[in-house]
Amino acid sequence: MAETTAPEPTRRDFLYIATGGVAAVGAALAAWPFIDQMNPSSAVLALSSIEADISSIQLGQQVVFNWRGHPLFVRRRTPQEIAQSKAVPLSALLDPVARNANLPDSAQATDADRVINPEWIIVVGVCTHLGCTPTVSTPQVPQGEYGGWLCHCHGSQYDVAGRVRHGPAPQNLAVPPYKFLSPTKIKVG
């Protein structure tokens, strides 16, 4: 049996590999600033919260605020809409996760876990498919079949709790971190 014997590694081999290794790590470290410079700057991060006065919003009406460059939907739901949303079983949902930044990741997408005060549904108005702004549905001008929102770009539909009911969107509309400062004032972010 022919046996191939590698020559014994020398001190010089070790130095080659060690030098090359240090150079590779150095190159990776030097590359990081050039990659990270593209991430949001501290100035952008500092603009991350807003306060909004919601006292003038009527029952059944939606007002759009601008939060972090995204539309923020603040919609005051009618009692019928709340009842209709509560009656939806979890099994009927495409995405059973609450996607509510105020709750643990494991929270389920029940109507109660999508809101803080059931009269107010507050979601980021960015379709979870490819980022368009969905159009609000009203009894006068219905959009889609679920009474919530319809995204015209690719046809996704959401119910009055902002939960996706018809694809291609994979997730419920995101509920941002927010709290009520008073019954008519919210702080988002």
């Binding site: 593209m38 991430n39 949001p40 700057s41 952008v44 991350s48 972090r68 460059g69 995204h70 960015v126």
Partner: peptide
């Protein structure tokens, strides 16, 4: 996506 945008959405950056 955030890295490409340099923010929370498409913007000046």
């Amino acid at each position: 996506s955030t890295w490409l945008w340099g923010g929370f959405a498409v913007g000046d950056a």
